[in-house]
């Protein structure tokens, strides 16, 4: 493998995590990553060395996710029931408030509008700086922070509203 492919391999965990925060279950997420990798490898000459490969790949994976979601909507024939949260482990930090469990967060995340969910996925879950996250989404930074803010408030409302 050359440098490009090695770096791509190193990115896999983050790509899978990003896809899983967008898609509704783990199998879908890995399919998205798979298609994203194929797309990236086909158009690798479009990536400029020296720029961030992670942001480039996130953008590709996101585009695949959008394409596949549209296609599925168009052919809304066979749908697996969403099993959000199935893969999530238990929260290892007992000090954290129970209602902020991983499961609750993921469940709430699935209910966000797509534009807010992807902002949350990039900044809160992956930890990308605002500037890179805005680049991935192709939006101005102000739009990103606005979506992010709305997403956060919605998450808090959902999590606190669902608390037992």
């Amino acid at each position: 493998m050359d440098t490009f492919e090695t770096e791509l391999t190193d990115l896999l965990p983050r790509l899978r995590r990003f896809a899983r925060s967008l898609a509704r279950n783990a199998d879908d997420a890995d399919d998205i990553v798979q298609l994203g990798l194929e797309r990236a490898l086909r158009s690798r000459e479009r990536w400029q060395p020296g720029t961030r490969l992670d942001a480039w790949m996130f953008a590709i994976v996101r585009n695949v996710w959008i394409d596949e979601s549209r296609r599925r909507t168009r052919h809304a024939r066979v749908e697996a029931p969403p099993e959000a949260g199935e893969h999530v482990g238990t929260d290892p930090r007992p000090a954290m408030e129970a209602r902020m469990t991983a499961r609750a967060v993921e469940h709430a995340l699935q209910q966000l509008p797509d534009d807010q969910r992807e902002a949350v996925a990039l900044v809160l879950i992956d930890g990308l700086p605002y500037r890179e996250a805005a680049e991935v989404l192709g939006i101005p930074q102000g739009t990103l922070t606005s979506r992010l803010g709305r997403g956060r408030l919605a998450l808090i409302a959902l999590i606190e509203g669902e608390a037992p």
Partner: peptide, 11 residues
């Protein structure tokens, strides 16, 4: 923290 942790396993 919770959002980050919720998807930490996959890493």
């Amino acid at each position: 923290d919770a959002a980050h942790l919720a998807f930490a396993d996959i890493l």
